[in-house]
């Protein structure tokens, strides 16, 4: 119980940050909105979309996935900053539940991502995207997106705790783009060279984005392969598997701070 209470206290620190710096809180929106505008209005006419589909109807689920993906470096930044500033040491020297530190990060980042997602959905509605799969479908789609974020959260915590070199953060931020582009978020994996297309189809991002398109009732590529056929299943399996790997790794890395 104290773990939960301490976790909430630690998370509240982030909420207070948002009040103090509202721009910083929605910083995570800059890239997805920017990419939406660039792709939607500049490249929109040039990119192949599923037959008869409006580009935004196709693009937006990909952008929701990207918003979650960018959370990886956001989490990593938060963890590294606390380590560098000595705030992590301060927390660790307090008589609080030690799980409260990571729990707090988890609560704060999930809340922030939920807010960002709601704002992105608003942007989608503004450019003409519509959910057409009913309320249950929409709720499931949002749930799967947050599930992906949850998995990336633990990956971000782990990386933030263990990678101490300068520039690692930049590397992760830079890698988010190829990971995003090497998926079905913007183009059909079928149009990529064979091995690259297979890689893109097995990208966890692709499973989530395909499942979200399906659940929102938006146009999608379909696809012949097994992963493409079982998008919703894989959109659950991938994040759960990632979390199952990175959660214990993060806990271990946190304990190892004392080595």
């Amino acid at each position: 119980m104290t773990a939960l209470a301490d976790g909430w206290t630690v998370a509240r620190r982030d909420l207070l940050h948002w009040v103090a710096q509202p721009i910083g809180a929605v910083f995570g929106l800059i890239f997805p909105v920017f990419i939406t505008l660039v792709f939607g209005y500049l490249f929109g006419g040039a990119v192949a979309v599923p037959p008869g589909a409006d580009y935004f109807a196709f693009l937006m689920p990909g952008m929701y996935g990207m918003t979650m993906l960018f959370g990886l470096s956001a989490t990593m930044i938060a963890v590294t900053t606390d380590l560098d500033r000595g705030v992590m040491d301060r927390f660790r020297s307090l008589p609080m539940a030690s799980s409260g530190v990571l729990l707090g990060r988890c609560i704060a980042d999930m809340l922030q991502s939920a807010v960002l997602l709601v704002l992105m959905l608003g942007c989608g509605l503004a450019v003409g995207w519509r959910p057409e799969g009913g309320l249950a479908g929409a709720a499931a789609a949002v749930g799967l997106l947050l599930l992906l974020r949850f998995a990336l959260l633990w990956a971000g915590i782990y990386l933030g705790l263990v990678v101490r070199e300068q520039g690692a953060l930049l590397a992760v931020q830079t890698l988010e783009f190829p990971v995003g582009f090497l998926s079905n978020a913007f183009v059909a994996p079928g149009t990529m060279p064979g091995w690259l297309g297979a890689l893109a189809e097995w990208n966890p991002m692709s499973s989530t984005v395909a499942a979200v398109r399906e659940l929102f009732g938006n146009p999608s590529w379909g696809g012949e392969s097994w992963v493409a056929q079982h998008a919703v299943l894989m959109a659950v399996v991938w994040p759960v598997a990632l979390a199952a790997v990175f959660f214990p790794l993060s806990v271990r890395a946190f304990r190892r701070l004392g080595r």
Binding site: L16, R85, L94, M96
Partner: peptide, 23 residues
């Protein structure tokens, strides 16, 4: 510690309240 371990964005009062709660 060797480096001031306080939250830069929060106010002094908010810092002390935060750590007080964690105590």
């Amino acid at each position: 510690g060797q480096h001031a371990a306080v939250d830069e964005i929060l106010s002094g009062r908010q810092n002390l309240e935060l750590f007080g709660r964690l105590y």
